[in-house]
Design a protein around this nucleic acid. Structure first.
Length: 887
RNA sequence: GCGGGUGUGGCGGAACGGUAGACGCAGAGGACUCAAAAUCCUCCGCACGUGAGUGUGUGUCGGUUCGAAUCCGACCACCCGCACCA
């Protein structure tokens, strides 16, 4: 258990307050920022214990940990600034705040660097981490670096291997064959997003569909709970919950078996299973369609070359964009026929169809063109029967004809035997009942969610801790042999997985029988690494995956912050993993993230030169008329769209350069002030410069107090002092409210208002107590802005209270004096028929009679009322008077 | 196609059903300065008016209400997600 050691605050005021030359800024952020970062570290302001005993309510703030690409980008700055505001604010509000940081350090870019530049993935990764850690430290984030880890460290991934083995024991892991995207040149499986136009994103080779034995985590076992729990996650964005619900994809229907008729029309032994959500439309069936990968399709292909050719064509067209965009439906009649479950003697053709997916349902459907658009398209193309069986409300059955549009709305069954007259829902139930009594089918809830394939044929990932033995099959690596470490001496000179090529690594003896055996050479999908890191932070040094007392104290994460791009995979995998960890006794919670906030992107204008090449923002110069020229050549520059910062468009801003020029506080302040954090923001030079001006202005407001020091609060204040104090305390209340609701841009606006009010007070004539009121205002300006601009806040506070002995980071959040939140007088709007005709001043909560009388007396109001009869007088206390008139 | 979201000045945006445009950016004018920078002050939705003020205005059209950016209905535009899911 670590304890926080307290050391004195460094006081080096003279370093930063030496008058600079007139033209230079007087607040020297370059000196102040490292100084305060050191002070926070020295006094361990952000350190908490794994199992705290301080009795404070816990608050776990987490931003999605970064991939160590080597440099932070503005998206990181936004993400970590948002998290830091929450962390610092909650800390000040009396919470014990855990705010850790680490690295999502396994992944393909490290291997690419190894192939392209010959640098070892580990070196590349650790160098990048060192560089990014330095940059993050410069931001002044209230992070507890003591908890830092990288997922590529054996100290981390050994516990992941242990968790996997526990899952294996608990029956949450399966090894099964599955279809994968195979890159024949790189010799590896590709994720769907790595397949572009049917070709491998690196090799450019056409991707093949291949069946491979892979490890799967049984996320589908939790599908109902993962779906149901979404309803209770009221601190998650609605759209993320919707996206997950769609992804999980629950549907209700029936599974039923069709009997194949042999060539004589008699029953054969074979059946074909079908899943449908519309069992009520069975009487409208006109064909059956099966996926090209369906076993029956294979059987047909074995004896029918044309069928084989058709299937081959489907597979090659596969996911190609042309097929998806045109949506053209293609089919091949196998000559087989199936019998209808309800209609004696009726049989239907079996087609192989490109629009039927093997991955969904059973890979076979019954076609009802009347009430399914895809089936309709197919039927019209191949001239198959169309029989309507659902009659829309208030429609004459004789007049109801279907053209090219299927009818999918509500109605009553007709042409449907025993279902006739029932509405759609009742007909579904009746049809399912009948299928069940006939023993050919049953009601079934189907899920779109698939089990999670975690095998990757790559080096730079966590080894899957199993051994393949010819005699014993798959044998888990015993606990005492963990971790299964990655070998360091690997080469990347040939395609495929370096672990597989390694001369010795995979050759081991079977832990069960001692015979020669092989290590699993696949590594985990990196989404596994990020599916439990948030729990590991609770006890990052423990020699077991998770220390129960620590995770039970800190989990769930109270506020998780990151990009919307992880709305489905990372967040869903983490929700699953947490449930699996609970079922294997590692944690006590189901849900890892109680609150989720998804931030918007950081955008920037893009620029093109005369030769149409993209230009970096620092290569161009803006002119007053809004046009731009090349800084060196003077040639005109086309100002393009404002869009997501990307290297290819060169519209990136380097956070390091911004911090060097303006300081971290300026970067943080601008990023918070621009707009609400969930929306995309635009980084602008003028906005950043504006934020910088404000940091200087705050410092000047504090400087201007020099020589006005008074220790005790005066008994009475003059009018300017009272105005100042009310502004201060209104600001406390408003900023508090804004921070509570993630309205950081509003909090910033309220602080600008306070600064403006202080400037006004500076101009007021000297009066008793005004100096004290100004000091109070500047103090609050500093303290209220501390979550956003922590360094400047400390600097100003230290200037005001050189002997306080504590840091703003250690102070409790200010409280507004309720007495000062009540205005001395209120402005009441006066309307006539809802139109504003004037305003009157009144004491708060003045009696209605007096207010209405004063309103009527207002000259402009009187003019508007002239010659009219007042029908009604509406009075909303302290807000508005409205006269309703006639005539 | 299905689902979701968003429309407010030149721009980002603010606004418990109660004075629309807080605050910032950009712009205009002024003070200080030999000058510039920095800083400070004033103005800044649109139209008419010297002005007081009047009219108009939150995507469009309606509705509810004493009063609508806000609530309801229809439509338009844009953005995002998913997509042959049976």
């Amino acid at each position: 258990m670590r304890t926080a050691r307290r050391r004195p605050i460094h006081r080096t005021m003279n370093d930063t307050t030496t008058p600079a030359p007139d033209s230079a800024p007087r607040y020297d952020f370059a000196a102040a920022e490292p100084k305060w970062q050191q002070a926070w570290a020295d006094r361990a302001c952000f350190t908490v214990e794994d199992v705290p005993t301080d009795g404070k309510p816990k608050y776990y703030v987490l931003e999605m940990f970064p991939y160590p690409s080597g440099k932070i980008h503005m998206g990181h700055v936004r993400n970590y600034t948002l998290g830091d505001v929450v962390a610092r604010y909650k800390r000040a509000r009396g919470h014990s705040v855990m705010h850790p940081m680490g690295w999502d350090a396994f992944g393909l870019p490290a291997e690419n660097a190894a192939r392209e530049r010959g640098v070892h993935p580990a070196k590349w990764t650790y160098d990048n981490i060192a560089a990014m850690r330095t940059e993050l430290r410069r931001m002044g984030l209230s992070l507890e670096w003591e908890r830092e880890f990288a997922t590529c460290q054996p100290e981390y991934y050994q516990h992941q291997q242990k968790l996997f083995l526990d899952f294996l024991k608990a029956g949450l892991v399966e090894r099964k064959e599955s279809w994968v995207n195979w890159d024949p040149v790189d010799g590896t499986v590709l994720a769907n997003e790595q397949v572009i136009d049917g070709k491998g994103w690196r090799s450019g080779a056409p991707v093949e569909k291949k069946q491979l034995s892979q490890w799967f985590l049984s996320i589908t076992k939790y599908a109902p709970d993962l779906l149901d729990a979404l309803d209770r996650m009221d601190r998650w964005p609605e759209r993320v919950r919707l996206m997950q619900a769609n992804w999980i994809g629950r549907s209700e229907g029936a599974k039923l078996a069709f009997t194949l008729a042999d060539s004589n029309g008699a029953d054969s032994a074979e059946t074909v299973e079908v899943y449908t959500t519309r069992p009520d439309t069975l009487f409208g069936m006109s064909f059956m369609a099966i996926a090209p990968e369906h076993p029956i399709a294979n059987e047909v292909a074995a004896r029918d070359p044309k069928a084989a050719a058709f299937i081959a064509e489907c597979k090659s067209r596969g996911t190609s964009e042309a097929t998806i965009e045109t949506g053209e439906k293609l089919g091949y009649d196998t000559g087989l026929r199936v019998k209808h479950p309800f209609i004696e003697g009726a049989t239907y053709p079996v087609w192989i169809a490109n629009f039927v997916l093997m991955e969904y349902g059973t890979g076979a459907i019954f076609g009802c063109p009347g009430h399914d658009q895809r089936d309709m398209d197919f039927a019209r193309k191949y001239a198959l029967d169309v029989t309507p069986v659902v009659l829309p409300p208030n429609t004459d059955p004789a007049a109801f004809v279907l053209g090219k549009e299927a009818y999918t709305g509500p109605g009553t069954a007709f042409n449907s035997g025993f279902l006739d007259g029932l509405d759609v829902d009742a007909a579904k139930r009746a049809a399912i009942g009948k299928l069940e009594s006939l023993g050919v089918g049953k009601g079934l809830t189907n899920w779109r969610l698939r089990d999670w394939g975690v095998s990757r044929q790559r080096y730079w990932g966590c080894p899957i801790p199993v051994i393949h033995c010819d005699k014993c099959g798959v044998v888990p690596v015993p606990d005492d042999q963990l971790p299964v470490r990655l070998p360091e001496d690997v080469t990347f000179d040939k395609p495929g997985n370096p672990l597989d090529h390694h001369p010795t690594w995979k050759h081991v003896n079977c832990p069960a029988c001692g015979a020669k055996a092989r290590r699993e050479t696949d590594t985990f999908d990196t989404f596994v690494d990020s599916s439990w890191y948030f729990a590991r932070y609770c006890s990052p040094k423990a020699n077991v995956p998770l220390v129960k007392a620590a995770v039970d104290h800190w989990m769930p994460v109270d506020q998780y912050i990151g990009g919307i791009e992880h709305a489905i995979l990372h967040l869903l995998y983490s929700r699953f993993f947490t449930r699996a960890m609970k079922d294997t006794g590692h944690v006590s919670v189901d849900e890892p993230f109680a609150g989720l906030f998804t931030q918007g992107m950081v955008n920037h204008e893009s620029y093109r030169g005369t030769d149409n090449r993209w230009l970096y923002p620092e290569e161009i110069e803006k002119r007053p008329d809004g046009t731009a020229v090349h800084r060196e050549t003077g040639e005109p520059v086309t100002v393009g769209r404002v869009e997501a910062m990307s290297k290819s468009k060169r519209n990136t801003i380097d956070p390091g350069a911004i911090i060097a020029r303006y300081g971290a506080d300026t970067a943080r302040w601008f990023i918070l002030s621009d707009n609400p954090p969930e929306r995309d923001m635009e980084w602008t030079e003028s906005g950043a410069a504006g934020a910088f001006r404000f940091t200087q202005r705050v410092f000047r407001l504090a400087e201007a107090l020099d020589g006005t020091r008074t220790e005790t609060m005066p008994d009475a204040f003059g009018p300017a002092g009272r105005t100042m104090r009310r502004a201060t305390h209104r600001c406390i209340a408003a900023v508090t409210e804004a921070l509570d609701s993630f309205a950081f841009n509003v909090a910033v606006a309220r602080l600008y208002e306070l600064a403006n009010a202080i400037t006004e007070a500076e101009r007021a004539a000297t009066e008793a107590g005004l100096a004290w009121a100004r000091r109070e205002a500047v103090e609050m300006l500093a303290r209220l802005s501390s979550p956003m601009m922590p360094h400047l806040s400390e600097e100003v506070y230290a200037r005001l209270f050189p002997d306080s002995g504590h840091l703003v980071a250690e102070l409790a959040w200010p409280e507004a004096d309720p007495a000062l939140l009540v205005a001395e007088s209120v402005t009441i709007a006066v309307q006539v028929m809802g139109k504003l005709r004037g305003t009157i001043e009144a004491v708060p909560n003045a009696p209605a009679d007096a207010v209405i009388a004063a309103a009527e007396a207002d000259p402009n109001v009187a003019k508007a009322l002239e010659g009219k009869r007042i029908v009604k007088r509406v009075h909303v206390p302290n807000r508005i008077v409205n006269f309703v008139v006639a005539g």
